[in-house]
């Protein structure tokens, strides 16, 4: 813990909610990137709360263009830096929320990976469009209550499971893919650092609980993120050179009910729905675990 940098690159005084999970992640992502970095940011919570014109919380060069093109803007920045610098070239870091990664900005990210630019894309996954008022996104789990998928008599919250984004990115042939949780910031720090050091495209996805969107207590952000990892709902793994490696191995999965009952968005779930949630979580955890023993599974 003493080896971690004390200098902050994400300044205090931003406008995040009390107990904001993504803001904790941003501090550590910025620390991992250091000062020799250019950040291309997609629209989202962290863009809105950190740069309320004429103020900014970022201490590194930072660019925001539109919602969908963090990947495209970052690619352009990387291509320009390649021409301008022959050595000590700045890192290119792209940051987007789950909406701008899973849905809106997917084409730009997909293209950036295909063109093999040297960057690290960090997706902070708060599992819905929390900035505009908690609408569902491609990362929202089934049965989660959002403003576009309310819980009623016929429809019980969201009706789709989230996309397996890290595996989709792995199939693109990215050099390094990792999932992290805000409950373990040292792990997050190391993964972002590794993603930036490895030449070629890298992708890090970090689960960050959202206080108003998930309906959790403002003090229990870390507790919920921790349970997300321990229940297996958010398995932590990295994919390097096509090989999957679990970075947090769970001996026994904690019942997912403990994770769900802390969140108001899952408040109305019936026993059967909790069981379905549990079996889905167990299936995906075992699936990722089974990939580990298979050796090279991605290009």
């Amino acid at each position: 813990m003493n080896n971690l940098p004390e200098k902050e690159y994400f300044a205090s005084g931003h406008n995040a909610c009390r107990g904001c999970g993504p803001a904790i992640a941003m501090r550590w992502i910025a620390k991992a990137a250091g000062d020799n970095t250019v950040i291309a940011h997609a629209t989202g919570c962290m863009e809105v709360i950190s740069t309320l014109y004429p103020y900014t919380s970022w201490k590194t060069p930072w660019i925001h263009s539109a919602f969908e093109n963090a990947g495209a803007v970052g690619s352009g920045v990387e291509a320009a830096l390649k021409t301008l610098y022959s050595k000590n070239r700045p890192n290119v870091l792209m940051i987007g929320g789950d909406g701008s990664t899973f849905d809106i900005g997917f084409q730009a990210l997909s293209g950036a990976i295909q063109r093999k630019h040297n960057f690290c894309y960090v997706c902070y996954d708060n599992e819905a469009y929390q900035n505009t008022g908690y609408q569902r996104s491609g990362a929202t789990p089934k049965y989660a209550r959002t403003t576009t998928t309310p819980y009623g008599k016929v429809v019980h919250g969201n009706d789709t499971w989230q996309k397996p984004m890290p595996l989709i990115i792995a199939a693109h042939g990215a050099k390094y893919i990792a999932t992290a949780s805000v409950s373990n910031v040292v792990d997050l720090y190391n993964k972002v650092k590794k993603g930036l050091e490895i030449p070629g495209p890298a992708y890090v996805q970090v689960q960050t609980p959202c206080v108003p969107g998930w309906g959790i207590n403002q003090a229990s952000t870390i507790q919920v993120a921790k349970l997300g990892v321990e229940t297996g709902a958010y398995p932590l793994y990295e994919i390097e050179g096509g090989k999957v490696k679990m970075t947090r191995k769970l001996e026994k999965l904690v019942p997912v009910k403990k994770y769900l009952e802390l969140q108001a968005r899952f408040r109305n779930l019936s026993e059967d729905e909790v069981k379905e949630f549990q079996s889905r979580v167990r299936y995906w955890y075992k699936y990722i675990e089974s990939l580990e023993s298979k050796g090279k599974v991605f290009p």
Partner: peptide, 24 residues
Amino acid sequence: MKKGLKFNIGGIIDEPGNSVETKK
């Protein structure tokens, strides 16, 4: 950013980390 705000063209913010001026 000083009092009597002066706005840059293109929304450029030229003082990094100046959000510390806004107390919370």
